[in-house]
Design a protein around this nucleic acid. Sequence first.
DNA 1: ATGCGGACCTGTTAGC
DNA 2: TGCTAACAGGTCCGCA
Length: 271
Amino acid sequence: MPELPEVETTRIGITPYVIGKIIEKIIVRQANLRWPVPTYLDKKLCGQTIHKLDRRAKYLLFHAGQGCLIMHLGMSGSLRILSQQICAEKHDHVDLILSSGNVLRYRDPRRFGCVLWSDEDPLKHSLLKHLGPEPLDLQFDLDYLFKQSRSRKVAVKNLIMDSRIVAGVGNIYANESLFIAGIRPTRPAGKISRKQYALLVKAIKKVLTSALEKGGTTLRDFTDSRGKPGYFHQQLKVYQRAGKPCKKCQGQIKSVVLGQRSTFYCANCQT
DNA sequence: ATGCGGACCTGTTAGC
DNA sequence: TGCTAACAGGTCCGCA
């Protein structure tokens, strides 16, 4: 599922196909995504040129001359560029027909994603305005995370998955980062030392950067804009490895549920 | 302010 | 073998 590296890979992949292109037409086959695709989208976007494609957390921001299209891929969403308007399949919910003749097609089987519109600065949109710093930004550092963690009772894994603390760290990379940092995911955030947070911040940045370089993890139904699968999952150390031997110490990887999310750790390496 | 559980949806997997 | 039930997953929302 699209985690931050997959979203960024998608952004980079489709950027050359959308920048400077006019949106000629919009086809909405299924408006019932996480939130309804606005009925006025057509009126707002058609005829406008996309001049910039940004990402904030896992949201993609298509800046038009006036306003901005906000997209989220949820957990099963993908975007592809088609050279022509080939027959849409079951979960192909939205098409943007571009002036180049290409089609930007949004597919999302589970419909956890969204396609929204913002008239003004999308960062002021209610979904985006409370987001914490980007994990790869300089503002996300030891001082920041340590300060945010003080007197917090939630498990550290929940803390780093809280988008108000840091935006876009999903379940896979939260698990992997905590393994690399040697921190048990269940530990109360407020009781972890500064030294360990230093390792954690470093681990988060490292694991995301590494996945980004590899073009994103492939799990189940992710394909990048060219239909080429990523392969980062081959290097996952704990995620979905319950019962299997730890790659560091051979101990058995444990799994628990934390904040309704499956959580994996090595009881020996992570304390 | 913080923490927690519910909700959304459907393909896949597990269980009978 | 076929059917049903449980589950995964990102993120917001609302309640305590």
